[in-house]
């Protein structure tokens, strides 16, 4: 296991038990607060924000881009699923955030159906919240298929996080 991957895996394991329990009880979608251009539920789970005029938050837009770079070759366009892999727009709504994270970090094997592990891939890990909120927005039909037409500006804090993460 590379350092990056094991780091994330440990962090996940630590946070998992308590947060997962909390999440079941609460609303996994509704925005409770915003911080530096990122939106969260009451349980501190990342979520999307779509304004009345259709403007999406930066992460949702970025998630659209990253999803269609890293995931669509197996999961199909717009999180719709394919002949090869499940529709992630459903998974993102139905799965616990931490389970979702853990599948992407560690991969999953089910006979000859294999989800790769992306734990040591910065092009995925630095944008996984983005991909997650985008897919959740798709699953709730909060954004239509295709490229979101209008987006919030990228917050400085998000840019800084990205620079730190991508190295």
């Amino acid at each position: 296991m590379t350092p990056l991957r094991s780091l994330i895996a440990t962090a996940l394991a630590a946070g998992l038990a308590s947060a997962a329990a909390a999440q079941d009880a609460g609303d996994n979608i509704a925005v409770a607060y915003e911080e530096d251009g990122r939106y969260f539920t009451a349980d501190d789970i990342p979520t999307y924000n779509v304004a009345e005029d259709g403007t999406v938050d930066w992460l949702t837009f970025s998630g659209f881009r990253r999803y269609h770079s890293e995931c669509h070759v197996c999961h199909g366009p717009d999180g719709e699923g394919s002949t090869y892999a499940p529709a992630l727009k459903k998974s993102a709504v139905e799965m616990d955030y931490y389970d979702f994270y853990s599948v992407v970090v560690n991969g999953r094997e089910n006979g000859n159906s294999v989800m790769p592990h992306f734990g040591d891939n910065r092009n995925v890990m630095c944008y996984l919240d983005d991909i997650y909120v985008y897919l959740k927005a798709r699953g709730m039909d909060a954004v239509p298929r295709g490229r979101p037409a209008k987006k919030e500006a990228k917050a400085d804090a998000i840019q800084e996080d990205e620079n730190d993460c991508m190295g």
């Binding site: 881009r65 770079s69 890293e70 669509h72 070759v73 992306f118 092009n123 295709g146």
Partner: peptide, 13 residues
């Protein structure tokens, strides 16, 4: 990253 996808573009078809 060796063994990881190295794509670098978003596509809509």
């Amino acid at each position: 990253t060796a063994g990881q996808p190295y794509v670098g573009a978003t596509l809509a078809m």
